[in-house]
Write a protein that binds this DNA or RNA. Sequence first.
DNA 1: TAGATTGTTAATCGATTAACAATC
DNA 2: TAGATTGTTAATCGATTAACAATC
Lengths: 217, 217
Amino acid sequence: MKEIKKELKARNISLPTLRRLPLYLRYLKKFLADGEEVISGNVLAQLTGIEAILVRKDISVTKVVGKPRVGYQVKALIAGIESLLNWDKKHKAVIIGAGALASALISYAELKGHGLEIVAGFDVDPDKIGGDIKGIPLFDVKELVPFCLSNNIKIAIFSLPSENVEEIVEEIRNTNIRAIWNFTQTTLEIHSDYYVVNEDLSAGFAIISSHILPPSV
Amino acid sequence: MKEIKKELKARNISLPTLRRLPLYLRYLKKFLADGEEVISGNVLAQLTGIEAILVRKDISVTKVVGKPRVGYQVKALIAGIESLLNWDKKHKAVIIGAGALASALISYAELKGHGLEIVAGFDVDPDKIGGDIKGIPLFDVKELVPFCLSNNIKIAIFSLPSENVEEIVEEIRNTNIRAIWNFTQTTLEIHSDYYVVNEDLSAGFAIISSHILPPSV
DNA sequence: TAGATTGTTAATCGATTAACAATC
DNA sequence: TAGATTGTTAATCGATTAACAATC
């Protein structure tokens, strides 16, 4: 795991850059669908609302080179971003906690397009076990470890109540899971065995609400 | 709107700080529930996984002062953060697009605890109109503007397909909405009339997938 | 050729971290 | 008092932005 981080660093790929690449990709695909074959950094900047110089800096990490006076090949740029993000491959994942958020993530078509294959959900609720969400089967959380092992799952998505996070983390250490996408309210430390991305829905709302003036003002 | 941003800047409140405050708040509430009355910056750092010096820096924006050798009053700190984020007030909001993501946000209890009151959902689907999600009524999107006006709604949550974003933004300009929490795949520019927070689910996945090594390695 | 655009190197900006005096 | 912890000021670090040479 450490080597990967080091490698990303050596390649000068920052987390902010990684976060912006999907945005470029989205507009590049639209641009391609419109029949355009080349795009300049300036145009991509205008479409995404990101500074042109930052667009070029970000693109540089893909090693895709553009032609001065012309721009970048849209297809090559799409391929470059997808390759960098490993979005040209399939990623089998499990989701733990089969509630409303799990439904939302399973239903989120764009992620499927990026290679995310959620192959199973796990829950403790007997009413859910044996059922499915949009065709994704739901199993008893007791089956988590054997399922992950026999299907060589590398990614776990956490959408379960905070109370149960700790025990699930322990169980996951007996699997080949290498990355946890964590939507719970428990912050997970990055561990040498697996990489963690903590999402915090309240963080976005903090910005929203702090920008709302109290009624009196 | 510009004055708000300026004011935040004048108070030295950065976006990263705003994003971390909910995390502190979460652990402070747990700490309080455990019967603790004071907490040191170091302990809060350990709980949240954030550097102690950064914790103190972040706390400083709340104007809550601690006692050397003792720490911060937990209740005062909670109150300070909630006040800063306007989480001590109710915020009526509408959600546009009544799909799986809307269900997840409506079901997300923590947001309710932060004062977010989603009072109505809007959709174009006749099967959804007239129904509800967890008791939140769903209306025809045609009723959006009159509803927001007569209920003085200040916050809109976007969870609709990208194709329809533009027209909804236009409609919203005829309301008192001051903030848009945008979960669509269309990036919205911050406008002088309203503040925007763009969420991008693919951004988190980009970090996850780029940290997964290809099978051969 | 002239000029627009890329890609790299340097400068700036802002956020994080360190140092340390103040204080309980 | 002694020493732990706060809060502020300064230093560092990293990301963004600017400048500009290379090039098509």
